[in-house]
Nucleic acid binder design. Sequence first.
DNA 1: TCAGTCCTTACCCTA
DNA 2: TAGGGTCCAGGACTGA
Length: 485
Amino acid sequence: MAPEKLTEYEQQRLQNIKRNEEMLAALKIRSKVSELSTATKRQRAETKSYKVSPEKKQKTETPIVLRRSLRTRGMPPDSSTDETPKSSPKEDLESILKEEPFSGPISMASACRTVGSDKKLLEIILSSSRNAKRSMSDDAICDSNNGILGNEDFVSSKGGKIGRLVDIKGLKLEQRNVARVVHGRIFTVRFFPARDTRVVVVGNKKGDIGFWNIDAEDEDGDGIHVYHPHSAPVSGILFDSFSLSKMFSSSYDGFVRLLDIERGIFDLVYSNDDGVFSLSQKPDDMKSLYFGGPNGEMNVWDARAGKSVFSWHLHEDRINTIDFNSQDTNNMATSSTDGTVCIWDLRNIGAEGPTSLRTVTHRRAVHSAYFSPSGAFLATTSLDDRIGLLSGENLEDLSMIHHNNQTGRWLSPFRGIWGWDDSQLIIGNMSRGIDVISTSKKNVVATLKSECMTAIPCRFDVHPYEIGTLAAATSGGQVYVWEQS
DNA sequence: TCAGTCCTTACCCTA
DNA sequence: TAGGGTCCAGGACTGA
């Protein structure tokens, strides 16, 4: 654009940017940032770790403006007409050091942050995707929390599937199954839901998504490949059960992206200015996405229509998780920072949204609410140091189990997940362990510990096909994969 | 009542 | 090995 065509605001913005450049030069911040980038290349000898691509680290040089809505900034709607930037030098400095999300499709090649070819990884995923399509009609049933259950499931007394019984207490961790997949705090961890592969996918606070092919052969190095499709914490990762080469990811940056591995693109499917803090899908409807916002609102996005078809205000604060009952997929549970867990009936939708069937109140924020594999239980995890367990015909019975959930500021809050059946819950332990909670005894029956696990595991996922394979992720970017011995 | 401040936690990196 | 930096979560407390 020619200089004479710039608006007054644009000219002022350019002056700000120039001033900030001078300030950065004076403070030598660029060199410090460069030093920090270089520092991330340090490798730890004892574990597998990703290898950062040096040329990709230069992108932080671009001056940007933090993308936030007027509402989240506490500004009235008409303040957008005020063209005079009022940011202080400190705020300008902060905005420069932060990253603006890119509001378009991103190729995997440009998003890649690791050295080495990812060809092998992509081949494995595409091959697994093709195999899954062939076998899908036989025995796969998707579950939004615990993945996909096969045809060997046990059946509960209520007639529902309860997964496969496994003794979690017998799991072992070996050094070869330890890796630093990404840098920094992991918010989300998922197994790639295929029978013939063991690939862990994690999302961290910086917006990176890391893939770790646990059984990587030598030509694939450590099997770790990291991409950077988001600019803020990754709040959710979902695989399309009918096409495993497609993966949804959501982020605090307000974007929901669809990774299409066949096309090699992180496509943009949805964006807002407030952030997306939880992501889920109805098990029987892969064409709809459910995601929660910072103020208790939930959106339902329809892939066929390509737009948000519902927007409901369900809570007074952030929605942390959304989950569906595998036996009655119209039953949805949401957990919120407002201290409540609600179960909703999606068949009865009024002007205010779906009908609330049940509300569980905790004394502090609730960070998860997950239905058990059979749908007979619901487990909630709260910062009030309690794990709620709902049971009974209509989940009317509530038990509270004491558990230390005080993770503090630097760890992702614990979220109790279900094992492969209804009998056990898995949750982090502040003593660098993994607690196994029995739903019948309603207490911790075992704590998995290993010398290889040098940090506190906060987030977990169970492999949907390999019974006894458990992924535990930490706030330091490590992933531990426990196996049956 | 609301806005602002303070405090808590674990982990990584560097000297 | 000690100590500084991280930081964007969330609750307690304080004062207007």
